[in-house]
Amino acid sequence: MARELKEVQGIIFKRQKYKEADLLAKIMTKENGIITLIVRGALKPKSKLGAATLNFSYGNYVIYTSGHGLSNLRTYKEVRQFDGLYNNLTKNAYASFILDLIDHAFLEYQNLGKYYTLALYAIKKINAGVDPEMITQIVQMQLLAAYGVEPQLKQCVICGKSQGIFDYSIKRGGILCSDHFRVENSRMHLKPKQTAVLRTIGLLPIERLGSIKVSDDTKKATRKAIDRIYRDTIDLNLKTKKFLDELKMFN
């Protein structure tokens, strides 16, 4: 495929040194997916390209690309940083984990569709000071579908009931109504409120979630449940998750 100049809009989220003064930077875009850019001379002092490709930079980038493999960054327009993330270790850790999670769900250059909107919304909210733990849980529940394990949250996986008291079953891949609690030993034994939170954050469009008010106890329980769902169905081993967990131990 011939190379062409293309303008993409996206978020820079991962950098590593490449040759002496160059770096590789990953950018998450909507239509063009996740692209790895070679940024020439980025590590030289006063490099404008280097400054425009700091982690959590967001804007328009002009790239030279063939639609596969490495692309070259040529220039940029209207780039700004999410300073609230860049200057705060905890926010940085949550945002890095979210983008890493999305990165592992898609191939390079695969259209992200609604998940780009999800990522951008999450980053903006965390940057603005909204509870990063709750935003991260929302992303994790909504991202399960991208990993091919979308849970049934609308109705009981056994009988289809949509109203009442529910628990969650990883084995069944969704919620169970109380009619089946005694016969299904794979359920997680969550409190009704905890299951309700998982349903809400998994089903509602993220822009309609607003500022969810959840108690610390419920938040810890849903965090534990989501971690278990991921561990038992996807089995990812992300460094960003390990770092985030270690950071939370000291906070």
Score class of each variant (00 low, 15 high):
101 L>E: 06
69 G>A: 09
69 G>C: 08
60 N>Y: 14
107 L>I: 03
123 I>F: 05
117 T>E: 11
112 L>K: 02
75 T>S: 15
86 Y>A: 10
84 G>I: 00
73 L>D: 05
63 I>V: 10
59 G>T: 12
81 Q>L: 15
130 V>M: 08
79 V>Q: 07
105 A>L: 05
49 L>E: 04
94 Y>G: 05
122 A>S: 15
51 A>V: 13
71 S>K: 09
101 L>M: 12
137 Q>F: 08
51 A>S: 14
86 Y>F: 06
72 N>S: 15
127 N>K: 02
95 A>K: 02
123 I>D: 09
115 Y>L: 01
78 E>V: 14
110 Q>H: 07
123 I>G: 08
53 T>H: 10
122 A>G: 04
94 Y>H: 13
93 A>G: 03
137 Q>C: 06
106 F>M: 11
80 R>A: 13
75 T>Y: 10
85 L>N: 01
49 L>N: 05
133 E>V: 02
92 N>W: 01
117 T>S: 06
76 Y>P: 00
128 A>N: 12
128 A>H: 07
65 T>A: 09
85 L>G: 01
67 G>L: 12
85 L>Y: 00
56 F>E: 03
97 F>N: 08
103 D>P: 02
133 E>F: 02
69 G>S: 10
136 T>Y: 02
103 D>S: 11
53 T>L: 04
90 T>K: 07
51 A>K: 13
106 F>V: 13
84 G>T: 00
129 G>K: 03
80 R>I: 12
98 I>F: 02
72 N>C: 06
115 Y>F: 10
86 Y>G: 00
98 I>S: 04
137 Q>A: 06
53 T>W: 10
88 N>M: 04
104 H>P: 00
96 S>T: 12
115 Y>V: 00
135 I>L: 10
90 T>F: 06
69 G>R: 11
132 P>D: 10
55 N>H: 00
104 H>N: 12
83 D>I: 07
77 K>A: 12
72 N>L: 15
110 Q>D: 11
62 V>M: 11
84 G>Y: 02
98 I>M: 07
109 Y>C: 05
91 K>W: 05
86 Y>T: 09
109 Y>A: 10
65 T>C: 12
82 F>R: 00
78 E>I: 14
66 S>R: 15
68 H>N: 09
89 L>W: 01
60 N>L: 12
137 Q>K: 13
112 L>P: 09
59 G>S: 14
124 K>Q: 14
49 L>M: 14
135 I>D: 07
88 N>S: 08
